[in-house]
Structures are given as structure tokens and as C-alpha cells.
Design a protein around this nucleic acid. Structure first.
Lengths: 154, 154
DNA sequence: AGCAGTAAGTCCGATAACTGGACGTACTGG
DNA sequence: CCAGTACGTCCAGTTATCGGACTTACTGCT
């Protein structure tokens, strides 16, 4: 009875990284979140090679994170807009930024400050949706599975 | 008066991605968060080439995200443990997982469920630390700077 | 003692991806 | 007509990644 090699774990982290797990993809998204939806702008503000940006945008569109829509017919111009799925990647971007502000700042002020609509500078906290407490790694465990951990029963 | 090219924006997202902005680095971290701290285990569970894993772990250690500590002298064995900085990357991993669960599940159940110490299955919500509201991209704006946006005054 | 096995890497050659820069096309505005 | 912008594509050179074999240092079994 052959067991399918359970080894490389397929989890949602891995799946997500197949799509956005690369510097330029995430930086392109950062720009879109900042309101810059045009190809050249993304290239300039991120520093990505145009080729690479083309490729990343293509997969972001293919996965339904961005939508490429014409914004002018006659000089053919396009805009990349966030879909619902794209908007939901905001926590990823914000947590990356938050971490960088804390640990890569070299004592300088953060290079960019965001303001929340409540009027304060943004600090993001990831919380448990059930109890509302800030999320700490030590408070979280994989839920034990009914079946063998390495094998899925028929 | 030469202005430093303001073009490729240096923000904390970019800085953070220089360190963890790659699939295998994040997947290695996922494993450490799940309690697998050994080289071979990370290789097996992530599917990364051993070479690449070596390289990633090296930079994670160099940046102070992981600590490589001997766990046995005589068969020389090592363990990679999260530092404080490493633990603070938890929100990044969790948001990636969360997003994958929502958008890459194909209607299947999430491949892994986490349980929070409050007793419920983990759903993570990123909130504003000032007002506590769930964070939506549309409620956040870059804080206007005093000086020109592209130039830093002397 | 001899053999199998594990842990933690290193080394290798083939392939794939990334890179910067030049180029193409389709326009607008002066 | 010329300069400029937007949105790419094409190229050739460099770098990174990949899977697999190999090394070193042990332990445990027979």
C-alpha cells in the first residue's frame, strides 16, 4: 500500500507564496495599495526591471489579485486595480512594513508613516478573531487531526 | 544641487523583503513556528533544495531572525530557534496562510487548522492598534510629509 | 567489527530566472 | 516635425535554483 509522499507539506502559506512569494510581486502590490496603478509608475517606484514587472503583473492578474483594465483607448493606457482578493492581501503588506519599521530602522524614523481613518498613525496588530487578543505564536498550535498526520484516509 | 534619485522608494516593505522575501525563507520560518527546528526536517517538510535552505538559514541567522545553536556536541547537531525578531514575523506567516485558506482552497477545507489558546480555531484579523477596528486598505493613507515628497531637506 | 542509518551540510553541472539597456509602437502637445 | 510619455518586448550576460551525489561524524544493531 503506497502512501503518497507526505513530505513537502502543502499548506496555504506555500500556496500563497507560489503567487506572491517574490519581492517584485509584493512591491508592485505595495504601489497599488498606495494608489499607483500604472505600469511605468510601478517600475519607477519599485526599481524592478520592466521585464520582471511585466511577468509579475501577468501572474497577479492571472490569479485574480489584480485586474488590468484599459483606462484610455486611443493612446492605449492601462491601469492595474486590486480585486477583492487583492485587497485582502493588505494585512500581508502591512505586517511586512510593521516588522521592517521595528527591526530594520537603524534607529531612524520609519521611511513612511500611514494614517488610519481614526486619526492616528497606523500601528497594526494581528488578533484572534474569536477572543480578540493580540496573536502570539506561543498561543497557537496545530489542531490535532483525527487521522494519521502524514496520510489521508480514503 | 544634486538630488538623490528618489525613485526606487525605500520603504520598510522593501527592506523586509530583502531578508524574508523569498519562498524558502518564509517556508523555513513556517516550519520553525510549527516547532521543527532542525535542518533536515525543514528540508523535508518544505521541499527546498538543501543548498538553498543552507543559504536561506544563513541569512535568517545573520539578520537575527533565527539563532543557530548546538543541541548536541558529539554527534554535532544544531537547532534553529526564533529570536524575538523572528517571533514578531508571526503575523506575516499567519496572514499569508489566512489568505491562502480563503482564496486558494478550491472549495476544500484548509490543509491545516490552527487552534488558539482561547479554544477556538484561529482566524486572524489585523486591526488598528489605536481604535481596534479591523484594518481595511481604504481607511489608510500615507501621512503627508512636511517636505517635498521626493526630496529630503538638509 | 561491520553494516545501515541519520543529521547537517557541501559540491556539481544543467537549467531557469533575473538584470540593465536598447528598441518598438502608439500616441500627445508644442 | 520633434520631444516626450506610456507600455511593453527583445537581447545577451550574469546569477540563482535545482536535483542528485557525496562527505563527515556519529549511533545502534547484529
Amino acid at each position: 500500500m503506497t502512501t503518497i509522499s507526505a513530505e513537502p507539506r502543502t499548506c496555504s502559506v506555500a500556496r500563497t507564496l507560489e503567487v506572491v512569494g517574490e519581492k517584485w510581486a509584493l512591491l508592485a502590490l505595495r504601489e497599488v495599495f498606495l494608489g499607483n496603478r500604472r505600469f511605468d509608475e510601478m517600475v519607477r517606484k519599485t526599481g524592478a526591471p520592466r521585464d520582471t514587472m511585466t511577468a509579475r503583473l501577468k501572474t497577479l492578474v492571472a490569479t485574480g489579485i489584480l485586474e488590468r483594465r484599459p483606462v484610455s483607448e486611443h493612446p492605449p493606457r492601462f491601469e492595474y486595480r486590486l480585486t477583492k482578493a487583492g485587497l485582502d492581501l493588505y494585512p500581508v503588506i502591512v505586517s511586512l512594513m510593521q516588522w521592517g519599521d521595528r527591526y530594520l530602522a537603524n534607529g531612524d524614523a520609519p521611511p513612511m508613516v500611514l494614517t488610519h481613518s481614526c486619526g492616528h498613525a497606523l500601528g497594526a496588530v494581528t488578533t484572534c478573531s474569536s477572543c480578540g487578543e493580540p496573536l502570539l505564536a506561543r498561543d497557537v498550535r496545530p489542531t490535532p487531526r483525527r487521522e494519521n498526520d502524514d496520510d489521508i484516509s480514503t
